[in-house]
């Protein structure tokens, strides 16, 4: 479980986060949603320690993450996997080398064991046999899946995803969503996904937090969305007239 307590973040004169207190549950897909500029990415970066909060605390189970020294921070990060918006695969390495990199760096394993683990992770993301390809030789969707394979290679307890579906077609997005849900179930990870993809919200959102102007505007499960009377949530999820009409016809609300 990951928990935030009254997180504030200020850049210059602009307060981006204004007291975020949230709980991200273990074994569930936790989604952070919100309009562009709502502070989602900043919050995610604070959660993984890439940005320090101006005030407030981040807890990883019973560990105060914001108070950790560099050494302890690095140790806890071995338990964190992250999928970046642009996949962040190393261009000069093959798919296999990319996925193997964390093991090469931190694990004392034989080359055979590493290869077995790489192949297992590629199998999980449905990309067997592309070990020798370079990131530039595979599609954006495949790059995301390789990014996921690299993120789970050390079997992390916490999985973070920054806009996993950005730039992908709806069908590939569904594949990625399903994959993240399966990994969460399979490994019982605390998965935190930062997204503004409505298909993801409605499809895999088990614990959703809507950020608006640096504050939590709504929190709940995706099956609570349709009947919620939260105007910000409704205007965000059903932003287009088409979706509004569809919702009215299907649910009469």
């Amino acid at each position: 479980m990951v928990r935030t307590e009254d997180i504030h973040k200020t850049f210059g004169d602009t307060e981006v986060l204004k007291g975020i207190s949230l709980t991200f549950e273990k074994g569930k897909t936790n989604l952070i949603i919100g309009r562009s500029g709502a502070g989602k990415t900043v919050l995610l970066k604070i959660l993984v320690g890439l940005i320090a909060p101006t005030s407030g605390t981040v807890w990883y189970d019973d560990i105060n993450f914001t108070q950790l020294d560099k050494k302890s921070l690095r140790e806890i990060r071995m338990n964190i996997g992250m999928l970046f918006q642009g996949s962040a695969l190393f261009d000069s390495m093959t798919v296999e080398e990319n996925i193997r990199f964390p093991m090469d760096m931190f694990k004392k394993m034989t080359p055979g064991e590493k290869l077995k683990r790489v192949n297992y992770c590629l199998e999980v993301v449905g990309l067997e046999g592309i070990n020798d390809k370079y990131p530039s030789e595979i599609s954006g969707g495949m790059q995301k899946r390789v990014g996921i394979a690299r993120a789970i290679v050390l079997d992390p307890e916490y999985l973070f995803c920054d806009e996993p579906n950005s730039g992908l077609d709806p069908k590939t997005s569904l594949v990625i969503d399903e994959l993240l849900l399966n990994i969460t179930r399979l490994n019982n990870t605390t998965t935190i996904i930062n997204t503004h993809d409505m298909n993801s919200v409605m499809g895999i959102g088990e614990n959703i937090a809507l950020l608006h102007q640096g504050r939590v505007a709504w929190q709940g499960h995706n099956n609570e969305i349709i009947h919620s009377d939260n105007e910000l949530l409704q205007s965000f999820i059903f932003a287009s007239p088409f979706l509004k009409e569809l919702k009215k016809k299907a649910y009469g609300v």
Binding site: R74, Q85, F90, P102, F106, L154, F160
Partner: peptide
């Protein structure tokens, strides 16, 4: 810029 350094940081690398 391509977040490779962030990715390495998250892995626990100096």
């Amino acid at each position: 810029q391509k977040e490779h350094i962030d990715a390495m940081e998250i892995m626990g690398l100096n």
